[in-house]
Nucleic acid binder design. Structure first.
Lengths: 96, 96
DNA sequence: TGAATACTTGAGCAACTATTCATATATTTC
DNA sequence: GAAATATATGAATAGTTGCTCAAGTATTCA
């Protein structure tokens, strides 16, 4: 059945959150457990700023959750639907 | 495990294909069966040109297949992974 | 208190995207 | 062959996105 405009827009927002290599790589490391911004940036070999900007978007979309401990901020996945979408997509890309 | 750059890029391409309201609405009508460009455009209340441009992208990504009959071109979904991703995403958006 | 650390944020910019509009191609009908 | 129909395509444009760089906020430590 034809998707309504508002629904299609929300769905597009969800997939948009997964439509960037950097965000997907962030998700891939958070699948192993929570990690702080500096370590994520180090793993990705990117600046903390770039990573922080992307985490902001993921946080806004409620795909990740943050926990502050001292001056570090630990991020973790806040949505198992996303992990399932990620894995299904990856499966398609790898053996598709 | 950290996603490699090329893999993350391919995965991002897949999700990018689903990251636009118009493309999602096209997919939503093609889930019911094949349809020609003019009818898709009419259902979406969009110009045929805009729809054709989006179909081009979906075709390029091999998410839809086209079949020409006379001067009409019928499109259908060419990937059940995509239908599954679509449904999983929609489920998240509707009762997430 | 002052310096160092961890992260966030805003502005700016280059690259990308989705639509419109005009035009082109292919097919049918007259 | 000419006109009409169905779709595709290229250029132009407005809007969006992801990064960098510089500056800002917290927090810890000396």
């Amino acid at each position: 059945m034809l998707l309504q405009e508002t629904t299609s827009s929300h769905l597009a927002d969800l997939f948009s959150a997964l439509s960037d290599p950097t965000r997907l790589r962030i998700i891939s490391v958070l699948l192993e457990g929570e990690m702080n911004v500096g370590d994520i940036a180090a793993q990705l070999e990117m600046t903390e700023s770039a990573v922080s900007h992307q985490l902001r978007g993921l946080r806004y979309m409620r795909l990740v959750r943050s926990r502050k401990n001292g001056r570090q901020v630990f991020y973790s996945l806040d949505d198992d639907h996303v992990a399932r979408l990620y894995r299904m997509g990856l499966d398609h890309v790898e053996h598709g």
